[in-house]
Structures are given as C-alpha cells and as structure tokens.
C-alpha cells in the first residue's frame, strides 16, 4: 500500500475519518464494559450523565479540565517545535512545590501581591525544570524524550523526600503532606457557592495568549519553522537552539501553572497524589487538539468529561475506572490515523 496526498479534500473526506474514529472508540468502550458485566448500550449515556448531566457534574468536569488545559498547552507548544516534552508531570510538581514554598508561611508582601508573585515564581520553577533537558539537547545532543521521562521519576522522588522531610506538615498526623496555604495564597472561586476556581479562568486566558503568540508573533513563527524543518530554519537565519530553549521555557512554565492551580485553587496543600498523570494526559489533549491552543480547551473538556463520567459510570455500573484510560488511548491512536486519512488516500499496489 502507498499513501497519496489528496489535493483538495472534500468536506465529507475531512469529517468521515474522525467520525469513524470516535464511533469505533465508543463501540470498543461499550464492548469492554459488556465484558465487565455492564449493559453496553448504557455506558456512554452514563458517562455523559456523570460528566455533563448536572451543574455539579459540569463544575467537576471544568475543574478536572483546568490542569489538563495547562499541560495540554505545555505539550502543544513544545510539540509544535518538535521538542518532545514528555515531562509535564515533573514541571507540574515544580509549580506546585513553588506554590507551597511561598504560600504557606507569612509573606512580607501586601496580600494583593501574593498571588501574582506565586504565579510568576511557579512559572519560573517549571521553566527551569524543563530548561535542564533542553540544554542537554542543545549542548550535548541528548534526546529529550528519555531525559524528560526520567526527570518525572526523579522529581517525584524529590517531592516525596521533601514531603517526608522539611516540608512535612507537623499537624498532618504523620501523612507526607505539606502545610496548608494561607488564605491570601488561595485562588478565589469564580462564583460564590459554586465549586469552580479562578484557575479555570487563568487556563482560558493562557490558551488565548498562546494562540496569539503562535499566530501573531515572531517567536510563534520561528517555533513553527523549527518544527517543520530544522535545517531550513537554520538556513533562513533562525537561531534554532535559542528557539528550542525559549520553547522549553514557555512549555515548562505552562505545565507548572497546572500544579499551581491545583494547589492554590483546589487542594490547598501539596501531596504526592496531586496529579493522577495530568502531565501524560496533556499529551493526549494536545494531540486531539491538533496542537491548536484554542483546540486544547475543547480537547481538555472532552478528556476531563471522559474521566469524570467514567468515575461515576464505574460506580453506577461496577466497571473498572481504567476504562477511561483505554478510551483515551484508543481515541488518541484512532484520531491520529483518522487525521492522516483526511489528507491522504490509501492506494493499493
């Protein structure tokens, strides 16, 4: 078989493969739920009901989407420049760590300045964590896929060490958990009485900012050029290594905001289970969004919906929650294939 580019894809050509991919994902999930003893025709309904069926469910989904928007943006920015940051998990914890470092004591600042200071410091922490693999790549040619992956393990152990050592909350009944943030360091709720915090607003704001950077700025242009063809970009006078370092700083900072927003908006303290893999899920979010920053918001809502919905479905129908991860992995693999098939035709030889 051979792939042949389609000059002018029709609308049907653009829509059919993704639709088939989505349907197949749903069918596979339903069949797997049937294996677990649930009614296969009920599964998707239960997931939808659990994720968007009530005000509480919708707020839960928006809360879950918030860190995913940040990590999704972090991955989208990096992958656009073909810088494979698989370490958003570590950068997320760097942001969370900075948040509790600054936000648990009494700060000598006026309370107005506390949140902005923490936000900037968190961004810097995440940026620096990713700068190490980026420098190893530009200086020594070390592949960033492996280094960022291994950094996740190293950084989580580092956090574990701090939580059992200097950062351990003396009032924490022996649990490895940091002290709670002071009230001035917490992100307020968007609407009083509704469980949704300003982290979500910050996430949407970041998505718009990144979209502007990518489409309207020189840096955005350079990042795309480096991603498309490094040699050509260098030939055109673009400082490739500098662009990669800038990309890394931006990407790491975004991922760190996920950690900041989870601690300051939702949890109030740092524990080792702060992130159930938000950094890795960000890769799925970014790919489903075709690396488009505004698409990341939609994709994050979709992914968060599946997680929240699958949680409630698994309680209602007694199906293991891992079904959500299977659905996402299947959707990811089928979607990248479907998107290829909107632009190429398979020709038999």
């Amino acid at each position: 078989m051979r792939l042949e580019p389609i000059k002018k894809p029709t609308l049907a050509r653009k829509l059919t493969p993704p639709a088939i991919a989505l349907t197949t994902t749903i069918v596979i999930a339903s069949l797997l739920a049937m294996v677990a003893g649930a009614n296969p025709f009920n599964v998707i309904g239960l997931i939808l009901k659990g994720s968007f069926g009530s005000t509480f469910a919708i707020l839960e989904t928006l809360n879950r989407a918030t860190p995913l928007i940040f990590t999704g943006l972090a991955v989208a920015v990096a992958f656009r420049a073909k810088f494979w940051n698989i370490g958003a998990e570590a950068q997320l914890y760097a942001g969370a760590l900075m948040t509790v470092l600054l936000g648990t004591g009494t700060l000598p600042w006026p309370s107005m300045a506390i949140l902005p200071t923490i936000i900037i410091a968190s961004i810097l922490a995440g940026a620096i964590v990713l700068l190490v693999p980026a420098l190893l790549k530009t200086r020594f040619g070390v592949d960033e896929v492996v280094t960022t992956l291994l950094f996740n393990f190293i950084f989580l152990l580092f956090i574990s060490m701090l939580l059992e050592g200097v950062l351990k909350d003396p009032m924490g009944m022996g649990w490895p958990k940091s002290a709670r943030l002071i009230p001035e360091a917490r992100l307020p709720r968007i609407v009083d009485g509704l469980r949704l915090h300003w982290g979500f607003g910050l996430a949407i704001f970041s998505a718009v900012c990144i979209w502007i950077i990518q489409t309207r700025s020189t840096l955005g242009y350079e990042m795309r050029a480096v991603g498309l063809n490094k040699e050509a970009a260098a030939f055109a006078g673009i400082p490739v290594n500098i662009v990669i370092l800038k990309t890394a700083l931006l990407s790491g900072g975004l991922a760190a905001l996920a950690g900041f927003s989870e601690v300051a908006g939702l949890k109030g303290s740092l524990t080792l289970d702060l992130s159930p893999g938000f950094g890795y899920t960000g890769i799925i979010v970014a790919m489903l969004a075709l690396l488009n920053p505004l698409g990341v918001v939609l994709a994050a809502l979709f992914v968060a919906g599946i997680f929240v919905g699958a949680d409630s479905m698994s309680r209602a129908a007694d199906v293991p929650t891992y079904l959500a991860d299977i659905m996402l992995a299947t959707a990811l693999l089928l979607m990248v294939l479907a998107i290829l098939l909107t632009r190429f035709r398979v020709v038999r030889e």
């Binding site: 677990a36 890769i283 799925i284 790919m287 891992y322 991860d325 996402l328 992995a329 990811l332 693999l333």
Partner: peptide, 18 residues
C-alpha cells in the same frame, strides 16, 4: 512514532489494569 508509542504505552497499561 512518539505519539503512537506513548499511545501504545497508555493502551497496554490501562487494558492490563482493566
């Protein structure tokens, strides 16, 4: 190969746990 590989890791891990 990056995306597919990570997708396979997620698929294999989650279906194993399931």
């Amino acid at each position: 190969q990056h995306v597919v590989g990570l997708g396979i890791t997620l698929l294999a891990t989650s279906s194993t746990y399931y």
